[in-house]
Amino acid sequence: MAKNKVSFKLKSNLSQLDALCQNLEKFGQSLGLSKKCIFEANLALDELFTNIISYGFDDKNEHTIKITISLRNDELVFNIEDDGIPFNPTKVETPDLECTIEECRIGGLGIHLAKNLMDAVCYQRCKDKNILTLKKKIKEARPQKKKVKG
């Protein structure tokens, strides 16, 4: 049976987006998740990861961002942990989506996408670390367990 938990570390560099994608695809495919589900999870994690790298560190040192993904019942749970400055993306204002092209601003859009693609996004500051927990319900059928309870 496929493992229902994976954990990996990314360096604070945008080039790590490829590693994020590869890890996610490998895990998602092992669970039989749809392409759409993997895409949406990838996008949400990408936006939050990119945000951490762009605004999360006030020094030039290399940092590590730890990502854990697990499947609990029919819910994917993502954990993103970094040692950057305190930042709560859930408090970022949603951009005005009713605007015209002239008024349209891109700020906050990544976080808006992440929030929309997930069922829940929670932030905690704990021991000098930012911890984001994202949850996404999956709808598609996964490989069935052979043993049936009851």
Partner: peptide, 11 residues
């Protein structure tokens, strides 16, 4: 795949 960085360029 497209992220907000891609949307920004198109905009």
């Amino acid at each position: 795949y497209i992220s907000s960085a891609g949307l920004r360029v198109i905009l």
